[in-house]
């Protein structure tokens, strides 16, 4: 069987798994809705209990789409970063991009009221939160790029990313100390991560961001493949380094920054999913990896969200904790099994 045939079958399986995960996700939650009721609702019949209609169409389905966008987008940004920084451990979290978003959110939620009186009645809505978080992540990304151009050692870059994380959490602690209980609570809830708090217009905006990031990634495919040989080789193959690096970084920033802004910092998806994907799609070809990683991330996120919803209980667990509980052991398992991360 030639590799391309093998990948076609794998894609079919993964797409099927996504459908199963999606159905599982929308049919579980604190209110139990029978599966046949959901099916008939899809066939256009009104549900027997009117609130079910609302729960299904206005909460669960937008939430499931958010989960798909968040999981797929974060994984894609992780893949881009791993190739761009030539490091299998790169990801939005490790490089401090998520910390940057946290800093932006913290400054808005807790810092604004401290700085001046006028800020206390400034726009404190979800859109401004998203903007602040995006700005924060782009700021960190820019600094990381500047450092990356100076420091050739990618290990040093990762350590710098971790340092950014520490600095951010220190600033956040200081802000938290002086903050009011209300604002602190808002920040903490944001940092738990959530895919269910988005309004319909926000889901559309997030869709736009992820689609834009995805399109830019697709335009980067050829350069990303060349980067696998190193920058000098890539240049010798006719790749314009500055331009293609810029496009890939903007795609990364849009995906990681935009998603963190709307759904909060969600750990480990960006780092772990590209490695998980290579267990089945054993290739470095980005034309195959980009769609595969997106599908994989979407499945993982839907499953994590299903767990977070814990069927038939009113509690919703913080999704950030779930992805860490799933993601961190995966990374450890991969390291132990292969003894080193092959990239």
């Amino acid at each position: 069987m030639s590799p391309s045939q093998k990948y076609r079958i794998s894609f079919l399986c993964v797409a099927l798994a996504l459908c199963v995960a999606w159905v599982l996700n929308i049919s579980s939650g604190s209110v139990s809705i029978p599966f046949d009721a959901i099916l008939s609702s899809f066939l256009g019949k009104p549900l027997e209990v009117p609130t079910w209609d609302y729960i299904l169409w206005d909460y669960r389905i937008p939430k499931s789409f958010t989960a798909i966008l968040v999981g797929g987008g974060l994984s894609l940004s992780g893949l881009l970063m791993q190739t761009l920084f030539r490091n299998p451990l790169a990801g939005p979290f490790v490089l401090g991009i998520s910390s940057g978003a946290s800093l932006g959110a913290a400054l808005l939620l807790m810092g604004a009221s401290l700085l001046s009186a006028w800020a206390s009645f400034s726009y404190l809505n979800d859109i401004s939160l998203a903007v602040a978080a995006s700005l924060g992540s782009f700021l960190v990304l820019m600094v990381v790029i500047l450092v990356a151009n100076r420091v050739k050692d990618t290990m040093a870059l990762l350590i710098i990313g971790l340092m950014f994380g520490s600095i951010t959490s220190a600033i956040v602690s200081v802000l938290a100390y002086f903050s009011t209980a209300d604002n602190l609570q808002r920040f903490i809830f944001w940092s738990f991560g959530s895919v269910g708090n988005l309004s319909q217009s926000q889901v559309w905006l997030l869709t736009g961001i992820v689609v834009l990031g995805g399109v830019l990634s697709i335009f980067s495919i050829k350069a990303l493949n060349a980067f696998l040989l190193g920058e000098n080789y890539a240049e010798s193959l006719g790749v314009s380094l500055k331009k293609s690096r810029f496009i890939a970084i903007v795609a990364t920033g849009l995906l990681a920054g935009g998603i963190t802004a709307f759904a909060g910092p969600i750990a480990f998806v960006g780092l772990a999913v590209p490695h998980l994907t290579r267990q089945i799609f054993d290739t470095m070809e980005h034309r195959i990896l980009i769609p595969a990683v997106f599908l994989y991330g979407a499945i993982l996120m839907l499953l994590c969200d299903t767990i977070a919803q814990w069927p038939n209980s009113a509690n919703v667990l913080p999704i950030n904790a779930i992805t860490t509980l799933v993601g961190a052991p995966v990374v450890i398992w991969l390291l132990i099994r292969k003894r080193k991360m092959i990239f």
Partner: peptide, 13 residues
């Protein structure tokens, strides 16, 4: 075309 002494980034190809 060029063949350089530097290691290629990925040897998983």
């Amino acid at each position: 075309s060029m063949v350089l002494t530097e290691q290629t980034t990925s040897k998983n190809l």
